[in-house]
């Protein structure tokens, strides 16, 4: 009697599906995920996983975690990242060491794929949650991620 069994199973699964969507319908007033953007511009907080742009966080001593290894530059599929670096004498140890001069990020070319952030061994670059990236001149889209005068945080390279 699989004929009537099929009918029973069919009706049961359909009702299960309807109960799931019905629950969503009843809770939709509280849990709507829609952001009414220009109205809540002040209070809008983007979710953790949102990919706004690549930034390099600096701590209060103006120190970042970028060692200049260039893995992000290699990982980038369309060349949005350029790193200008040179070997300088480290004032603490007195040895010659690779240091970044400028970490240049072309936001206008970036496809937000996130490969640079996955490739970074020291977590020097992360996603920012901002989304108002429009500017009147495309040259503003070329950004230098490390702040002027910043230096590598001690202990990152070990």
């Amino acid at each position: 009697m699989s004929y009537f069994g099929d009918i029973y199973k069919g009706i049961k699964t359909l009702l299960t599906g309807m109960s799931v969507t019905g629950k969503y319908f009843l809770t939709s007033r509280k849990g709507a995920i829609t952001q009414q953007y220009p109205d809540n511009r002040e209070t809008l907080k983007m979710f953790e996983r949102f990919r706004g742009e690549v930034v390099m966080p600096h701590d209060e001593n103006n120190e970042h975690r970028c060692t200049g290894c260039q893995k992000c530059e290699l990982a980038c599929p369309n060349g949005s990242i350029e790193i200008i670096w040179d070997r300088q004498i480290d004032p603490e140890s007195g040895k010659k060491k690779k240091m970044i001069d400028k970490h240049i990020y072309h936001l206008g070319m970036c496809t937000m794929c996130g490969l640079c952030i996955e490739a970074c061994p020291t977590d020097a670059i992360v996603w920012a949650q901002n989304f108002e990236n429009s500017v009147y001149d495309r040259s503003y889209l070329t950004k230098v991620l490390n702040q002027p005068g910043s230096k590598l945080k001690a202990g990152v390279e070990e």
Partner: peptide, 13 residues
Amino acid sequence: KVAAWFQLRLGPN
């Protein structure tokens, strides 16, 4: 509107 509420959206407002 009903479609929006089923999908946890607000719908036309």
